[in-house]
């Protein structure tokens, strides 16, 4: 992935209307991309919920070993006779959980440090900004691999925390920039003058106006967390017996799915990760479009030779 928000979205003229324009269905109508993205994510959430209630053991073994897709086992079986489709469904929940939990934690950090720092200003902002920039340039994934390799603890809890603590900085920086622009706006200055308390201003005035950027940053971290978790699982770090898409890939690799041409075994989990990531990314593109009207389609107006609309007009008789 590249970066949280396209910098375009951070353009100051875009965010003024973000609060109003984020409401309701109009957003979806304006951005088909966002609609598709939401559908995909919603689908996976449903799948995750489904397993919570209906699948008790996604790893159940059987004698149907390494069978390709068939009417009975839609996505075939593994080396140990596990049903790939069942595994896939059962893995959706934990994968989403890691993603959303790490995303949430990182977003909270980013909001507190980015918005808080920018709003307080002065020394504390300088310091927080420095910390943010340092964290941003220290390579996160190697650090995550090293730390989780050393921790050796199973379970997804520590992984969530590690991912969150290494991935907040990018979002924090974007939020800081936006807050700084907004801090100088009239309505904030006015509430400062009228002596409202700092935290109140942040919560009542600032947060609602940055909400689209916060959401966008959250989604970015979720994607990052899901990809990173998959990587860690693929390395066998963390609990290899948990069911996540990353672990499915790990077992497929270890048990030689490639050598035996069991494509139905390793393709689906990766594609699921990519599809979920695409859904999340599409939501973010949609947010970009809502925040920055210039990104919306204006094809109808675009002549080939010029940037601008040059269509000569109809003469009046």
């Amino acid at each position: 992935m590249s970066l949280p928000l396209s910098p375009a979205a951070a353009s100051p003229d875009g965010d003024a209307s973000s609060r109003a324009s984020l409401r309701g269905w109009r957003v979806l109508r304006r951005s088909p991309r966002m609609f598709v993205g939401l559908c995909i994510v919603f689908f996976f959430v449903l799948v995750a919920l489904y397993r919570t209630f209906f699948i008790h053991n996604g790893n159940a073994l059987s004698h149907q070993v390494l069978k390709g897709p068939s009417a009975h086992d839609w996505l075939g079986t593994t080396q140990l006779g596990q049903n790939v489709l069942l595994q896939l469904i059962a893995s959706a929940g934990p994968t989403l959980l890691v993603g959303f939990a790490a995303g949430l934690l990182a977003t909270i950090l980013a909001v507190v440090i980015g918005i808080g720092g920018a709003f307080l200003g002065g020394r504390s902002d300088d310091l927080l900004n420095l910390v943010t920039n340092v964290v941003l340039v220290i390579p996160a994934v190697p650090l995550i691999i090293v730390v989780s390799g050393f921790l050796k603890s199973g379970g997804i809890g520590p992984i969530i925390v590690i991912i969150a603590f290494t991935s907040w900085a990018g979002v924090s920086r974007v939020l800081r920039g936006i807050t700084l622009t907004m801090r100088n706006r009239d309505f904030i200055s006015a509430s400062k003058l009228s002596g409202e308390r700092t935290w109140r201003i942040i919560i009542v005035e600032l947060l609602p106006n940055t909400v689209a950027f916060v959401i966008s940053g959250f989604i970015f971290t979720v994607i990052f967390a899901i990809l990173t978790q998959a990587g860690l699982a693929f390395l066998g770090l963390g609990d290899v017996n948990a069911l996540t898409w990353g672990n499915m890939l790990y077992w497929a690799e270890v048990d030689g799915a490639l050598e035996v041409h069991a494509w139905w075994w390793f393709l689906p989990p990766g594609l699921c990760i990519a599809l979920l990531g695409t859904g999340l990314a599409l939501i973010n593109f949609g947010l970009d479009e809502v925040l920055n009207p210039r990104l919306r389609s204006q094809r109808a107006f675009r002549p080939k030779t010029s940037v601008f609309d040059d269509t000569p007009v109809a003469e009046v008789p």
């Binding site: 992935m1 590249s2 994607i223 990809l227 998959a230 990587g231 693929f234 990353g246 890939l249 990766g270 990760i273 990519a274 599809l275 979920l276 990531g277 695409t278 999340l280 990314a281």
Partner: peptide, 8 residues
């Protein structure tokens, strides 16, 4: 493509 893990 961008949403795929590198290793995948």
């Amino acid at each position: 493509l961008t949403a795929m893990p590198y290793f995948f």
